[in-house]
Each structure stands twice: as structure tokens, then as C-alpha cells.
């Protein structure tokens, strides 16, 4: 039970990062972006490439950081991957979403995002192979926190959680203390009013894709670090990430952060009663429960 809770918090942290970017894009551009979870894959794979690159060029970065399986090379690769993934998100918008939007076919954006997701996922599979990969093949032993009940945590997991909480805190400071943060929230809540209030929407759209892509890259690397990397990361995480945004309320950044943890924990606790084969179904059950009890989520407001 406690082990499930801990695992849930960990996956929850990853979902939070994914859902934050998704909810901002979804609210600002008014469409359910089914390709957002593929940004996690792009993040994980580009970090993999950069890590190899840094290790080859700068051999001294191949050492691991303290008790973690993460190398110094991966730490730097993570930052490079955030930049690449953010840039990819901006590029996809420019190549596809912006054009569909400008044709006035806003409803078709969902279709476009599905098509894009299919393309990204399968191109990754073609380039990197369908097999799963790991950042590190070294086996890192989990620290046993308690024997009865048996609770184990890996150092990597603690690091992932700590970094996520740090980023969430930094995001919180920006959103609650700076006018730039207010502008981001304003755009998420009401894009046309934001524009009337002097916010340059085009520039903000680029910013939001960059932030969303960067956070998704982190989430992807963290997922790869605590689980494994495979071309189907996006397929497996798309529904949980959507569930997190719905739990939090579409458009609410704080809602998405909290929603990620709620979905992660609930999905893991559900496995104490459900056979593990059913775990892909749990996010949908959470969505159904939210729609029944509180359709607009924790922080969402009723708006068309």
C-alpha cells in the first residue's frame, strides 16, 4: 500500500510536468492536443542521443552523479533535450497547427494532432527501433526504507521527485509573483482578452509551446530514468496526462500540477484492488469520476 503510494507520487510528478504544458496549450489554442505526450518521447530520445554525444566528446562526464545512475552527461543532455523538444513543439505548431488554425478549421486541430502523434511515434520507432532502451544499464539497487511492510526507493526516484518539486516551485513563483506569470495565466484563461490587454498573442503562443515542450522533455527523461524508454511512451502516457488536466480543470496550471499527482497516486492505489492488466483503464475511470462529481475539475470554471 505505502509502496503503491510512493510509486504513485513518482509517476504523478512526471504526469504533472506533462499536464502543465498540455493544459496551457489546450486552453490557449482551444483543442485537445493528442500529440503532446509524443513530446515526452522526443524528450527522452533526444536526451539519449545527447548523452551518448557528450560522453563521447567529453569522456569525463561519463561518471555518475553520487548514488544516482544518472551521469553528468545526462544532466547536461537533459537541458539540451528541453531546448530541442521545445523547439520541435514550436516547429510542429508552425508547420501544422498554425496553418490549420489560420484556415479557420479549428475543429480539425484535434485530427491534425492525432495524425502528428502517429507520425512522431512511428518515425521514432523507425529511427531508434521498437525495442526498449535504458539510460543506464547498471543496476542501481533500491534503498530499503522498511522491511515490514517492504518499502523500497531508488536514489534516482528521489532525485526525480526533488527536481520536479523544485521546478514546480519555480513555476509557482513565476506564476504568482511576476507580471510575466500573470500574462501566462491570462493567456491560458482568456486569449482574446489577454490580447486586448496588450499581450502579444503570437509571441505568447511560441512561449507556451517552448515551456510545454521543455517540461514534457523533462517528464520524458524522468520517465525513461525510472522506467524505460520506448517509442510507445507517448501512447502509454497520453490518457493519464489528459486525465490530469481534466482532474485539475482545463486551463488551470495549478490544477494540472495537482491533477498529475492525483492521477498518479489514484492509478497506483487502484492496483491494490484491480489486477495489474487493467492499469491502462484507470485514467479513464478517473476521468469518468470527475465528470460525474465535478465536471469542470478542481480549479476549472464553466466556459464554452
Amino acid at each position: 500500500m505505502i509502496q503503491h503510494l510512493i510509486d504513485g507520487i513518482l509517476i504523478g510528478a512526471i504526469l504533472s510536468l506533462g499536464a502543465t504544458g498540455l493544459t496551457m496549450v489546450m486552453h490557449m489554442l482551444r483543442f485537445a492536443n493528442f500529440s503532446h505526450a509524443e513530446l515526452l518521447s522526443i524528450g527522452a530520445y533526444s536526451a539519449l542521443v545527447f548523452e551518448q554525444l557528450f560522453k563521447a566528446v567529453l569522456p569525463f562526464t561519463a561518471g555518475t552523479i553520487g548514488p544516482l545512475s544518472m551521469t553528468w552527461a545526462l544532466a547536461v543532455a537533459m537541458i539540451a533535450s528541453m531546448a530541442v523538444t521545445g523547439a520541435s513543439a514550436v516547429l510542429f505548431d508552425k508547420l501544422i497547427f498554425k496553418r490549420v488554425r489560420e484556415k479557420g478549421e479549428e475543429l480539425s486541430m484535434v485530427f491534425a494532432s492525432f495524425g502528428l502523434a502517429l507520425i512522431i511515434r512511428n518515425v521514432i520507432g523507425l529511427v531508434f527501433g521498437l525495442q526498449t532502451q535504458l539510460f543506464s544499464k547498471d543496476i542501481i539497487f533500491a534503498t530499503v526504507l522498511s522491511r515490514d511492510p517492504l518499502i523500497m526507493v531508488k536514489p534516482d526516484q528521489i532525485a526525480v521527485l526533488a527536481i520536479t518539486l523544485l521546478i514546480i516551485f519555480a513555476l509557482h513563483l513565476i506564476l504568482s509573483r511576476t507580471t510575466y506569470g500573470y500574462a501566462l495565466r491570462a493567456v491560458a484563461e482568456n486569449p482574446s482578452l489577454a490580447q486586448v490587454n496588450g499581450i502579444n498573442l503570437q509571441r505568447m503562443i511560441v512561449t507556451v509551446w517552448l515551456i510545454g515542450g521543455g517540461l514534457a522533455a523533462l517528464a520524458g527523461v524522468f520517465y525513461g530514468l525510472t522506467n524505460q524508454i520506448s517509442p510507445v511512451i507517448g501512447r502509454d502516457l497520453v490518457l493519464p496526462v489528459f486525465a490530469a488536466t481534466i482532474v485539475g480543470g482545463l486551463g488551470s496550471i495549478y490544477g494540472a500540477l495537482l491533477g498529475g499527482f492525483i492521477v498518479g497516486i489514484a492509478a497506483n492505489l487502484a492496483l491494490t484492488v484491480l489486477p495489474s492488466g487493467y492499469s491502462p483503464s484507470v485514467p479513464f475511470l478517473i476521468i469518468l469520476a470527475v465528470l460525474l462529481v465535478r465536471p469542470h475539475g478542481l480549479f476549472g470554471e464553466e466556459r464554452q
Binding site: 489546450m26 483543442f31 485537445a32 493528442f34 475543429l107 484535434v110 497520453v238 490518457l239 489528459f242 486525465a243 481534466i246 482545463l250 491502462p280 483503464s281 485514467p283 479513464f284 475511470l285 476521468i287 469518468l288 465528470l291 465536471p295 469542470h296 466556459r303 464554452q304
Partner: peptide, 18 residues
């Protein structure tokens, strides 16, 4: 169906997975 169109898209997608 009373809510934003996104909800139908996400829910039906989830329904298919389940």
C-alpha cells in the same frame, strides 16, 4: 456533450482504450 468539445474527444479516446 454539455461541455467543451475537447471532453468528448478525450473521453471517447479513453473509452476505446478501456
Amino acid at each position: 456533450l454539455r461541455m467543451r468539445r475537447d471532453y468528448l474527444a478525450i473521453s471517447t479516446f479513453g473509452m476505446a482504450i478501456v
